[in-house]
Design a protein around this nucleic acid. Structure first.
Lengths: 124, 124
DNA sequence: TGCATATATGAACAACTGTTCATATATTCA
DNA sequence: TGAATATATGAACAGTTGTTCATATATGCA
């Protein structure tokens, strides 16, 4: 067994090809909670309905039924989606009588969508 | 039935609260294929393992086993993840003998990760 | 108070996801 | 050629997800 051989847990035995490179990248890695949180944010945005909702809200504050009309999906589906977005603090809402007006909770989200779409538009 | 009442498909009957606003947002919406593609990209990034891989590759070109070591996951899991990333054209690879060296296929991805982490770091 | 409207939510279900295990392919070297 | 190494992949499984349906809550109005 050479110096460059190690085991990771007891999952399997893996050789290092370039241990120095691995060390330097390891030092640059983000802490686990940040990775987890970012993965959750991306997961939330990884759904066409929620992308449409978030993108629409980046243009205008909208109530639940106008969102449902805009997207052509049921009120229930929109409400469930909004709850998911709310739980991840991507959207916020204010209540006016019976009506709930939703808007983006974070300017970063609009930027993420913008950057994402510009990536897609080049790829497509 | 007033002018502001319509049905969407035959799913349910929904009132418009502000039809003009809905119309203007509808005009600004992205085409369905772009939304679908972006949702798929975000979905791919909505997994901690793949985020770690993509982030690591934004720092250095790495082979499969060094990625496995870096993340402490099995070679098989890394290989499956890389295939997913490859299919969405997020990473590319070159082969050198037995070794496959992976790197990001698109500079946008590094930007998306950077922007995403900066969002998370403010939230946290 | 009673009815209509706007939204929220719980249960249930099919569809999908990420990992593991076993195995296949492909390359290098002796 | 045969053994060792690096990676890829198929099957299978538990866990998760998004929608629908039915119903609950809450507000406004007559």
């Amino acid at each position: 067994m050479t110096k460059a051989t190690e085991t990771v847990g007891d999952a399997c035995e893996i050789q290092f090809v370039d241990e120095e490179k691995v060390k330097s990248v390891r030092a640059a890695m983000k802490p686990a909670p940040a990775v987890t949180a970012l993965a959750e944010t991306f997961k939330i945005l990884g759904d066409p309905t929620r992308i449409k909702i978030a993108f629409a809200l980046s243009k205008e504050e909208l109530c639940v039924c106008d969102i449902a009309n805009l997207l052509g999906v049921s009120q229930s589906a929109v409400s469930h989606s909004l709850r998911t977005l709310r739980q991840m603090k991507l959207v916020k809402f204010r209540k006016e009588g019976k009506t709930a007006y939703y808007s983006l909770d974070d300017a970063h989200i609009a930027n993420l969508l913008e950057l994402g779409f510009s990536h897609i538009e080049e790829t497509l």
